[in-house]
Design a protein around this nucleic acid. Sequence first.
DNA 1: ACCTGAACACCGTTCAAGT
DNA 2: ACCTGAACACCGTTCAAGT
Lengths: 213, 213
Amino acid sequence: MVNESVWLRPARRERRPLTLDRIVAEAVALLDEEGEARLTMRRLAERLGTGSTTLYWHVKTKDDVLDLALDAVFGEVPLPAAGAWRERAAALVTGWRAALLRHPWSTGLLDRPLMGPNALERTEFLYATLAGAGFGGADLPAAAFSLSTFVTGSATMQARDPAGDGAAVAGRLLAHREAYPVLAAHGLDPDWDAVFARGLAYLLDGMAARTQP
Amino acid sequence: MVNESVWLRPARRERRPLTLDRIVAEAVALLDEEGEARLTMRRLAERLGTGSTTLYWHVKTKDDVLDLALDAVFGEVPLPAAGAWRERAAALVTGWRAALLRHPWSTGLLDRPLMGPNALERTEFLYATLAGAGFGGADLPAAAFSLSTFVTGSATMQARDPAGDGAAVAGRLLAHREAYPVLAAHGLDPDWDAVFARGLAYLLDGMAARTQP
DNA sequence: ACCTGAACACCGTTCAAGT
DNA sequence: ACCTGAACACCGTTCAAGT
């Protein structure tokens, strides 16, 4: 019969099979475009051409999707190949910050255990770099945690600032100039790159001085 | 008529009027006891003896409740009265960390603008302390942001670690010991207080060296 | 000014059923 | 092994109505 012709049958919307990788990639795209509040199992499934309940064969919960999306961001952080320990640590940490800021929603997920393979690989790299530089005993975890804490904290702080213009904060501060005089005079619209670079220098200087006197 | 007697009328469940302060205090208590996932407008209202829709006269959205709860935590951070700049900064930052860790859910809210009066007062205090110590120009915002970033980041990192025993992370690491050898050997179950103290010393050392040569 | 109840447009997740 | 639809037990929020 004519109406069984290939051309008349509704085309399969999606030929590619649904995989975990496709789900994670689409979740990252959705988060990039619309932010965390709009990430819904139903909306995510819709973008993939299925129903929301289909996702649950590939994934146990929505939290899984978020964990995987976050680790995908960590996967974008390059591992610097060579250099002295200080340059390698600085390069790692700078690339780490850039990846987080490319996906500002990621800073809202930095509570929750970072146990994905990409996150662990970067942490291991940091530990290995510092251990190789002579950090030992209590200085090794202290140095490693200080650096990673500094990255995640400063990316969060910057992502918090809407569109980098500091308009909202500025308005609130200027309205209460007398209550926050120093902050209003010097804390508006900081140059985030410069703040990060200088803060990192403080930290690395302090680390170097304590372990290599 | 007998059934209009006071004793037979149902008692008013709550005599105290509903105020913003009561709502915020109850939200903090609920978050402390059950965590962020269980904070619901309906559950919060139930604890206050009303319906969820009543809350919306006092508050515009649920986000308002979270913003107010977070700023209540900042309100617990004492402002150190005296001392040299380094001791004052260290005391502020140590109390800040303690307040966040007393309410571990707060670290999950540290994305979002910190524009509550309590948060701004602490930030202003930090700026004023550093400005008084001679930090000027680009060093002032860099020093202030470095310190606050370090606090929020390290509290987040510690709150992430379940119950402080590091069991979950340890299990994952030990299962892949060959992939993460340095981390598995030195990064398990850190002494968080020691890590924080040493990291803070790195940072303050670096700051002091750059501005007061 | 403050509180209430009903209702709307959603959620995440389960599960029996299909191929 | 993989996908689907119906259904459950919730959500945040609005709004007309009460006092």
